[in-house]
Amino acid sequence: MKILGKPTSINVRKVLWTCVELGLEPELEPWGSGYRDTNTPEFLSLNPNAMVPVLKDGELVLWESNTICRYLAGREQRQDLLPAEPAARARVEQWMDWQATELNNAWRYAFMSLVRQSPAHQDPAALQAGISGWHRHMGLLDAQLAKTGAFAAGDQFSLADVVLGLSAQRWLMAPMEHPELPAVASWLQRLNERPGFQLHGANGMP
């Protein structure tokens, strides 16, 4: 098994954390900014989006980090991370999809401005709107965690916590004022008890 991507990428780190939870030790082949160019024909033949990560498992090639995490949990038959029962699985996948479609879009402008220092993302009004939207979405997560009292999809750790945990750590590390979100803070403490999060989440990389 091989993962193509760079260890600093938040989406690669989702997959690496999932592998720790599953006891897998795939080979990491570095691709992306600062490493091998993902716009080469070799990489584009694997992922036409030119994005990392890509998983190669024998003849199987997969891209999209959340899909890769789902595949690996299913491959290892880890129903604690991704339940087989339809309603329980849907609750996990609901929060995974929310992370990819809603939360990611909420932090994009502010992250590019504050962390990446992108010259194209320095409009004050757009930055403030981005910060406000990021905080609002994190507030939704805080409300969910306060409701469950444990983890994102319920009382058991799941893949939803992997993908959301990395996003929450990015929010926490961004150089801006943060509202108090006590349920998020307690949840991050619980995540920090897991070796995979220590290696790939609370590791100093936003």
Rank of each mutant, 00 (worst) to 15 (best):
A129L: 09
W98A: 03
L141F: 09
H121Q: 07
A100H: 06
Q99W: 03
F111W: 04
A88V: 05
A106T: 01
S132N: 12
A146F: 10
G133Y: 05
A125D: 13
F111K: 00
Q94I: 13
L140V: 11
V115Y: 04
G139Y: 04
M112Q: 12
Q94H: 10
V92E: 03
V115T: 08
N104G: 07
R136F: 10
P124S: 02
M138S: 03
L141V: 12
I131W: 08
K147A: 14
H135S: 07
G133R: 01
L141Y: 07
A120Y: 13
V115C: 06
R116G: 09
V115E: 02
G133N: 07
M112Y: 08
R108C: 04
W98F: 14
G130N: 00
R116H: 10
R116L: 14
R91K: 07
R136A: 11
W134P: 04
H121T: 12
D142P: 11
M96N: 06
A120K: 14
G133I: 05
G139H: 02
F111Y: 09
R136Y: 13
P119A: 02
L145D: 00
R136G: 08
N105H: 15
G133K: 03
H137F: 13
T101L: 15
L103P: 04
W98T: 05
A110G: 05
Q99E: 06
Q144N: 09
A106P: 03
V92L: 07
F111I: 03
W107Q: 01
A146Y: 09
H137W: 08
S118F: 15
S113D: 06
E102N: 15
L145P: 06
S132K: 08
P119L: 03
H135T: 07
A90Q: 13
W134I: 05
L141K: 00
R89C: 08
L141E: 02
A88N: 02
